Amino acid sequence: KLLSSIEQACDICRLKKLKCSKEKPKCAKCLKNNWECRYSPKTKRSPLTRAHLTEVESRLERLE
């Protein structure tokens, strides 16, 4: 599967780190437990900047 097509777990399953069936409108866990089942939009991760990478590398060197 391509990364862009990976389905996201519902908010509660993601928060509780449960295996989500990803069914809509309610996944199996939410249906069974009568929880409100919501699927928040995916958040875009910002790409690493060179400055951040350099900072992490220098912190790693100090720890070694």
Rank of each mutant, 00 (worst) to 15 (best):
C27N: 01
Q8R: 06
T54F: 05
C27L: 03
K1L: 12
N33H: 11
L15V: 12
L31T: 12
R14W: 04
E64N: 07
A9R: 03
L3H: 11
K29G: 04
K32N: 11
W35H: 12
L3P: 10
L60I: 08
E61A: 13
T54P: 06
L63W: 01
L60F: 06
S4Q: 11
L15M: 14
R50K: 03
P25F: 00
E23Y: 03
K42D: 05
I12R: 13
C37G: 07
L31W: 14
C27R: 08
K16G: 00
K26Q: 15
A9K: 02
R14L: 06
K32Y: 07
L31A: 15
E57N: 01
L15F: 11
L53A: 03
K19E: 04
A28P: 02
C27A: 02
S5W: 04
E64C: 09
K32V: 09
L15I: 11
K19Q: 05
P25G: 10
P41Y: 05
W35T: 12
W35V: 14
N33S: 15
L3N: 13
R50D: 06
Q8A: 12
E61W: 13
S40Q: 08
L15Y: 15
N34V: 11
K22N: 06
E64D: 09
L48Q: 04
R59A: 09
I6M: 14
N34S: 11
S21C: 01
L53N: 02
K42Q: 09
A28R: 14
A28W: 14
R14M: 03
I12L: 11
E57P: 08
R50E: 06
H52A: 02
L63R: 09
S5D: 15
S58C: 15
K16N: 07
A28F: 10
L63T: 03
Y39K: 00
T54C: 08
R14P: 05
R59C: 04
L2H: 14
A9M: 01
L15T: 12
R45M: 00
E57D: 08
L31V: 13
C10T: 04
P41F: 02
L63V: 04
C37N: 00
S21R: 02
N34Q: 15
A28N: 09
E57S: 08
C10F: 01
K16R: 05
N34H: 11
K26D: 09
L63K: 01
L2F: 08
S46K: 03
K32M: 10
S5C: 12
R38F: 15
P47E: 07
E57V: 06
C30D: 03
K22E: 05
I12W: 15
K22I: 03
I6F: 13
P25I: 04
P41T: 05
L53G: 02
R50L: 06
L31G: 14
E7R: 07
K44D: 04
K1T: 15
L3Q: 10
K16T: 00
R45I: 00
K32F: 08
K22H: 09
A51N: 12
L15K: 10
L60M: 13
T49S: 04
L3D: 15
V56F: 03
L18M: 15
A28I: 13
K1H: 11
E61L: 15
K19M: 00
E55I: 09
K19C: 06
P47T: 00
S4T: 11
L2Y: 14
R14Y: 07
T49E: 01
L63D: 01
C13P: 01
E23G: 10
C13M: 01
H52V: 00
K24A: 14
L48W: 07
R50Y: 08
S5E: 11
N34E: 15
S21V: 02
K29Q: 07
K29N: 04
A51D: 04
E55W: 13
K32W: 07
Y39E: 06
K26F: 14
R38M: 15
R62T: 12
K1A: 13
A51C: 10
R62D: 00
K42N: 09
W35E: 09
R38P: 05
K42G: 09
T54V: 07
E7W: 11
S21K: 03
K26E: 10
C10P: 01
P41W: 05
C37E: 01
R50H: 00
Q8H: 11
E57H: 06
L3C: 14
R59S: 08
C10H: 00
N34I: 09
T54R: 02
S21Y: 01
C30A: 06
K19W: 04
K17S: 05
E61K: 10
K16Y: 00
C13A: 00
E61F: 13
K16C: 07
K16D: 03
S4C: 13
D11W: 04
A28Q: 14
Y39H: 07
C27P: 07
R38D: 10
C10V: 01
S58E: 15
L3R: 09
K24P: 07
L15D: 10
C30V: 05
D11K: 00
L31R: 15
I6W: 09
K29L: 08
P47V: 06
R50P: 03
V56L: 10
S5H: 12
Y39C: 02
I6N: 10
K24H: 13
R38S: 13
P25M: 02
R38G: 14
E61R: 12
K17R: 08
C27F: 07
T54A: 06
E55A: 13
K29T: 08
L2K: 12
R45P: 03
E23L: 08
A51W: 04
T54H: 04
L48K: 06
P41S: 06
K1C: 15
